[in-house]
Design a protein around this nucleic acid. Structure first.
Lengths: 164, 164
DNA sequence: GTAAACAATATGATTTTTCATATAGTTTCG
DNA sequence: CGAAACTATATGAAAAATCATATTGTTTAC
């Protein structure tokens, strides 16, 4: 210990956190995701969407005609949740659901013109926000962030054992 | 376009995703956090805790005697949620709440022996799980992941404008 | 061709989370 | 001192998310 502690916290004399949590990968991932998303998610809500709805919209603007299950995975939501989100977005006229002619169990989801228009507004906003974030990281470790995350995702996607 | 598309998805001939989402920083962060946490969070639930409870436990094992507001920030939960989580954990005998003698508005939270014992079980599990994740990333971009995340957090912590 | 197994989506009930605001304690400033 | 402004926590009501399972459609194996 380099210095007296003045309270029960885990800050050192420079104000840096110490202890387990502040260097723990799962904390860093969750915190970074939360903090980095906060500003943009506020814009999403101003545009009248909830976060999961924005995710669905973005996924569909990449992959129109996706299935519910597929969207659930891509939008990081549970299937039953997705079903309800899709229903609400359909009521709002942002998308339509059509049963797949080749397999009647499947529901394929397509953006309407209104949905496409909203995506055309929000996706560029997202890109600008991302660019601003990347700009803040210039120098530092910024260049490595996306590759490192992709590498983590790639490593895990293969190895997910349902029994944990 | 290098090849015909066979369906409406955004996979190319190697099975890689294309499109906006799969290269979008906020998606990569959220997805990496979700996927990387999934396995360990299953262990947390087997130990009888919900994820936010585990986070509180971990924070307290770093910083015993923290305030509710402080825990809310560290555990990535809202204050009103934290109040309830703390109440439930107190009922279970994992921690106790004591009003701060120096400022009666503040509630300071301390682990009980039972809480400390549970932390002593779970924190090492978390460390082992983290080590296994890092092992999977050896070579790749693994060495850069935590520094890059910390750099992002550091960049954002200063610049959070409440008006967004 | 049909029963069993499987797969995709939907739904009811419950739990979790949020939002707005109430309550209680403290500091500031006249 | 005492009112106003502020801070920390708590709480009721509402919204969102989850869990288990039902429903509907398809494939497999006889």
């Amino acid at each position: 210990m380099t210095q007296q502690k003045t309270d029960a916290t885990t800050k050192d004399e420079t104000g840096q956190d110490r202890g387990f949590v502040s260097d723990y990968l799962l904390y860093l991932l969750a915190a970074a995701s939360d903090v980095a998303s906060a500003q943009f998610h506020a814009q999403v809500r101003k545009a009248g969407l909830r976060v999961p709805e924005w995710r669905v919209l973005a996924c569909l603007s990449d992959t129109d005609g996706a299935m519910i299950t597929q969207l659930a995975r891509q939008a990081l939501a549970e299937q039953s949740r997705l079903t309800r989100i899709i229903a609400q977005m359909e009521e709002r006229g942002l998308l339509i659901r059509r049963s797949d002619p080749a397999d009647g169990r499947r529901v394929r989801v397509y953006l309407t013109d209104a949905g496409r228009a909203l995506a055309a507004e929000l996706v560029p906003q997202a890109r600008r926000h991302e660019a601003a974030l990347m700009e803040m990281l210039k120098g530092n470790e910024g260049a490595h962030l996306k590759p490192a995350l992709k590498s983590l995702l790639a490593a895990l996607d293969g190895s997910v054992d349902p029994q944990g």
